[in-house]
Amino acid sequence: MRPVTAVPYLAGVCLAATTVVALDVGMEARPATVAWPSSGVVPSTSSSPPSAERSAPSVDTFRSGADLPAGPAFPEHGAGTWHVVPPSGKPGASGVTYAVEVEDGVVLPHGDDSFAAVVDHVLRHPRGWAGRHAFRRVGGDVEPELRIRLTSQRTARSLCGFELPYDTSCRIGSTVHLSTARWFRGAHTYGDDLRGYRVYAVNHEVGHFLGLGHEVCPEDGAPAPVMMQQTLSVDNDGLASITTGSDQGVVVVPDGKACTPNPWP
C-alpha cells in the first residue's frame, strides 16, 4: 500500500505498488505479468485467510484489520486480462469516463453486474466524489480515463506489491485494482459491514486517481478520513506499527489517536 510514480492525468499516489510496477498496466488488453518474489511473503494457494498460515496474530493485529478476516471462498486466480462489464442505459453527457471491468476467470455468485452496481452507486452518491467530480460510465467501445477492475487475489498481490504481507487493493496509473480477497471478506476494521468496506475501497482508490495521498487519524474518536489506510488500521498507533519501514506516502505518528471506520469522503 505504498505510492508509485504519478501519472500525467490527475496524478496521485497509489495505495499499493512495488517499485518494479512503474507503468500503467491497465491501458492495454494484454495479460498482466504476474511476478512472484524470490523471497518474502507469497500468498497461499488455499482459500484460508493468510493469518491462519502465520503465527496467531495478536489482538492489536485484529484490531488494526491488517489480516484478512475469515469468511467465504473467493477467486484466487485469474487470467491477467480483463473484460468490460457493459453499462445499461445511456451514458451521462459529461464527466470523467470510467469503465468497470472484471478479470477473466473471476466468477461472481451474482454476476459481473453485482460488482458494477456497487461501483456505480459509489461514484454517483452525493456523499462520495460525485459531490466534487462528475463521472460517466462507458463501455468497451470507448477508451476510458479511469478503469475500475475486480482483480483476483494473486494478480492483485503481484501488481499491488509484496512490501506489506497483507491483501490490499491499489491504483496504478489510471487503473484501480480491487482485490477479490478484500471484496469478498472486507477488513477487521469494518467487522460485518462488508458493504461499507466495499464503498470505502472504491472511494479510497478513486481518491488516489483524483490526486489524493494517504492521511492519518486527525482526532481521537473522529470518523477516519477516506484516504486513511483503513484496511490496515483506523488508529495511528496500529497504522504506524504495521507500516514501519515502508514508504506509504505519509508520516504516521503513534500518538494514540483512534478513529472510527468511515467509507465516504
Rank of each mutant, 00 (worst) to 15 (best):
G78R: 07
R30P: 00
V107E: 11
W264D: 10
V4G: 14
H83C: 03
I172K: 06
M27S: 13
G40W: 01
A56I: 09
P69T: 13
P50T: 06
A70N: 05
A11Y: 10
T97F: 12
V96C: 02
A201L: 14
L239W: 01
E28N: 10
E219W: 05
P225N: 04
L210H: 08
H121N: 12
Y98F: 15
F184N: 03
A79I: 00
G207R: 02
P263F: 11
A156G: 03
A93C: 06
C259T: 05
L159Y: 09
E219F: 03
A52T: 14
E28K: 08
Q230L: 03
T244W: 03
A134H: 05
A93M: 05
P86T: 07
G249Y: 10
E103H: 04
E219K: 15
D24Q: 10
R132Y: 15
V85Q: 08
E76V: 11
A117L: 11
E28G: 05
R2G: 15
V119Y: 10
P109C: 02
V20S: 13
F135A: 08
G92K: 06
L194Y: 03
S51D: 07
P57C: 09
F135V: 06
I148V: 14
P126A: 08
R147T: 09
N262M: 08
P87N: 01
H214Q: 08
